[in-house]
Amino acid sequence: MSVLFLIIIGAAAGFIATRMMKVEADLITTIVIGIAGALLGGLILRVLLVMTGMAAGFVGAILGAALLIWAYQTYIQRK
């Protein structure tokens, strides 16, 4: 992502965020708030996705183990 694109997106995000929070700030402060917020939000989102991915893997492992136990009890332990 280019620096210019980051500045434009940061300025827009900062403008929206400052208006939502009812903060009056100059253009430079708004841009800095937007860029810093984008970086912080991106970091938090990545951490949440990694944690969710690990949790999903854990749930998948449990379901896989339950399926194998069912198959073992149904087809092998029948004797």
Results as ranks from 00 to 15, higher is better:
residue 21 M to F: 15
residue 68 L to E: 14
residue 24 E to A: 08
residue 33 I to K: 04
residue 62 I to R: 05
residue 31 I to Q: 02
residue 60 G to W: 02
residue 34 G to R: 00
residue 64 G to Y: 06
residue 68 L to C: 11
residue 33 I to F: 12
residue 28 I to M: 09
residue 29 T to L: 09
residue 54 M to I: 14
residue 50 V to Q: 13
residue 34 G to P: 05
residue 62 I to D: 03
residue 55 A to W: 01
residue 35 I to H: 00
residue 63 L to W: 06
residue 57 G to T: 06
residue 21 M to P: 12
residue 62 I to H: 04
residue 42 G to T: 03
residue 53 G to S: 07
residue 65 A to P: 08
residue 39 L to V: 12
residue 63 L to R: 08
residue 62 I to P: 06
residue 26 D to K: 01
residue 65 A to L: 06
residue 58 F to V: 10
residue 62 I to S: 01
residue 36 A to L: 13
residue 26 D to N: 14
residue 66 A to I: 07
residue 58 F to I: 12
residue 44 I to H: 00
residue 43 L to D: 06
residue 27 L to T: 14
residue 65 A to E: 12
residue 62 I to N: 03
residue 55 A to H: 05
residue 43 L to T: 15
residue 60 G to R: 05
residue 47 V to S: 09
residue 60 G to F: 05
residue 25 A to D: 09
residue 31 I to D: 01
residue 19 R to G: 04
residue 62 I to G: 00
residue 46 R to F: 04
residue 36 A to E: 11
residue 29 T to I: 09
residue 48 L to A: 07
residue 33 I to Q: 05
residue 50 V to G: 02
residue 43 L to E: 12
residue 32 V to N: 01
residue 28 I to D: 01
residue 30 T to M: 03
residue 44 I to D: 02
residue 42 G to H: 00
residue 43 L to A: 15
residue 54 M to K: 11
residue 55 A to V: 07
residue 60 G to Y: 02
